[in-house]
Design a protein around this nucleic acid. Structure first.
Lengths: 332, 332
DNA sequence: CTGTTAGCGCTTTCAA
DNA sequence: TTGAAAGCGCTAACAG
């Protein structure tokens, strides 16, 4: 009793025309007479015809799907980025396949390979790897986010990591801090390296000698950030302020800061997070706007998918310090 | 100069056999002679052949992809659920397409339709709609999460919303509260209704007459929760405690509670969130474990995809109160 | 403006 | 055990 889904052929038959003409109508080809068009449209209605995206993709050699590859879907920053991309994609009837690298270059490779194999129409990538040779001949447009690809001429939407970190640290210095700790990711990404460089820039400019004891490179996924914070705060000559180079580090560090009742310390986070404005003191951040990054990346990708060919570009999303309290505390 | 990707035919040719035999080898069919198999495998190696998933799906009438439909990807609860599902899927070489309903039944319909059209192998759905008639003849297995489908015999992974809400409110009562406010979603989902019912259950059992002035049904996406909290706290006869029926409501309510300096109030949140343990007082929650829900849902779906046919079941993920401070404050 | 034919890359009869 | 041919549903050529 169950009717099989109608095929284009059925529509054509019902409309007394050929499949190709029916196809034309469905794809909005102008060169069809009004009457034929009407008949086909009627048939589509009557039969409840819906084109099969799989067949279409196979024929076209390309899927109406984009891939988004990030560190981890559960990461609040990437969750927001993805949310925005998905929102924009859905409005265009494009599906989004997501995949996480878990910050493993090897896994990134596998995931991208699979996506390419599927012939996704485009890819938005927060790459953890520094070797993109296999993407050089990518059959689809690529937009990198958060981290530009150093070895590939591809669009990217990033922030000025170095400048932002410097802003953060200078903000703390402006409030009297001179002994400022750095907690950030291991230096296996350019992003992490740039932020550390920005930190050093700020110290340099102020004529402060950097102290390696104040620099913690951690694996935030493992909860190392909290441990690092405790170590820092228990130093003989502890910092009066902490600059946390990303959201995950902030999320790891703050529970420790609070547990040790050291909320008197200066604190600036590169990247916002839920409740940052509600905890006491509220956390001063360098605003990162994941939604904006998602939107810029998606716009760029869609414009390429639409056939536009703007020059390859690295777009810098704006960055600003949002003072909320923790960054304005003076030393002692 | 660019070599087109090798097709099955090329492999067959190189192995001096037919496409069908090559196909058999690739799909692990036993009925191939060892020597032929070896030749084919060699050819696959040499050519770097990778089967085209699109063509495969078209032929098989099914895609090695599952769809996950949630309210909003950026919602921390769903972000974690998705993260876990994606993790499990990737281990099996299955892709995950995600889509948000933004809590719009109409949009849910469109999104599911698109996914079905794509012939996804299975679907995990946090449904906002209460009409699933069009899914009754779904060609693929369905697992509902967070909210079971009342009008459909399908697997579901949920929590005991009613019991959990009751637990939360009773926890507050155990600490002396009798005037307890409820802030939750509009009652357009069974989940919201059950949680409100659980709230009423607890009051009933304690012989407390419910006061409608203490019940706020809000649209958390719109920031209504904060407004509702302010209204509640400014009542003539204000509540001494608030039960927030979900994470989004908590995230909306707490900034207001803090802004009004009413952190003396009792507070329990249905659902955990970042920093809940760090703000002062730390927030007592009913733990919800999104990862577990994601895992259970994915396991169930994959077992059906593997051809197992366990009886349709609604699985209840465990729930427990995690006391952290805010729920243990007494009145006044 | 329209239709026929071929074929995307794969798997599946069914016969050898 | 193997292979030829058909076809999943669609669209691009190209002729009419």
């Amino acid at each position: 009793m169950k009717a099989p889904r109608p095929r284009l052929r059925d529509v054509a038959q019902a409309a007394q025309t050929s499949t190709k003409t029916a196809s034309r109508v469905i794809n909005g080809d102008e060169r069809v007479s009004a009457s034929t068009r009407a008949r086909v449209e009627q048939a589509v209605q009557d039969l409840g015809y819906r084109p099969d995206p799989l067949a279409r993709s196979l024929r076209l050699g390309q899927d109406e799907t984009i891939g988004v590859v990030v560190d981890e879907v559960g990461d609040p920053f990437f969750a927001s980025v993805i949310g925005e991309i998905e929102r924009m994609a859905l409005d265009r009837g494009i599906s989004v396949i997501i995949a996480s690298t878990r910050r493993l270059a090897e896994r990134e490779r596998i995931v991208l390979d699979g996506l390419l194999q599927r012939r996704v129409a485009g890819l938005i990538i927060a790459s953890i790897s520094d070797n993109h040779a296999y993407l050089r001949t990518s059959p689809c447009p690529l937009v990198f986010i958060d981290r530009a690809a150093a070895d590939l001429a591809a669009d990217a939407v990033v922030v000025d990591d170095r400048g932002g970190a410097r802003m953060a640290v200078e903000h703390l210095m402006r409030h009297g801090h001179r002994r400022i700790a750095y907690i950030g990711d291991r230096l296996d990404t350019a992003t992490a390296r740039s932020r550390l460089t920005g930190y050093r820039d700020a110290l340099d400019a102020a004529g402060i000698a950097p102290d390696d004891a104040l620099i913690a490179e951690v694996e935030p996924a493992k909860g190392d950030a909290g441990v690092a914070a405790e170590t820092l705060l228990r130093l003989q000559d502890p910092p009066t302020a902490i600059f946390s180079a990303n959201t995950r580090c902030s999320l790891g560090t703050l529970p420790t800061v609070h547990r040790l009742r050291r909320t008197d310390i200066g604190f600036v986070s590169f990247g916002d997070f839920a409740m940052a404005d509600t905890i006491t003191p509220a956390i001063t951040i360098v605003d990162h706007s994941p939604e904006l990054i998602g939107r810029l990346a998606a716009e760029r990708l869609f414009s390429r998918l639409a056939g536009e060919e703007p020059p390859v570009e690295t777009i810098f999303a704006p960055l600003r310090v949002v003072p909320r309290g923790s960054g304005e505390l003076g030393p002692l």
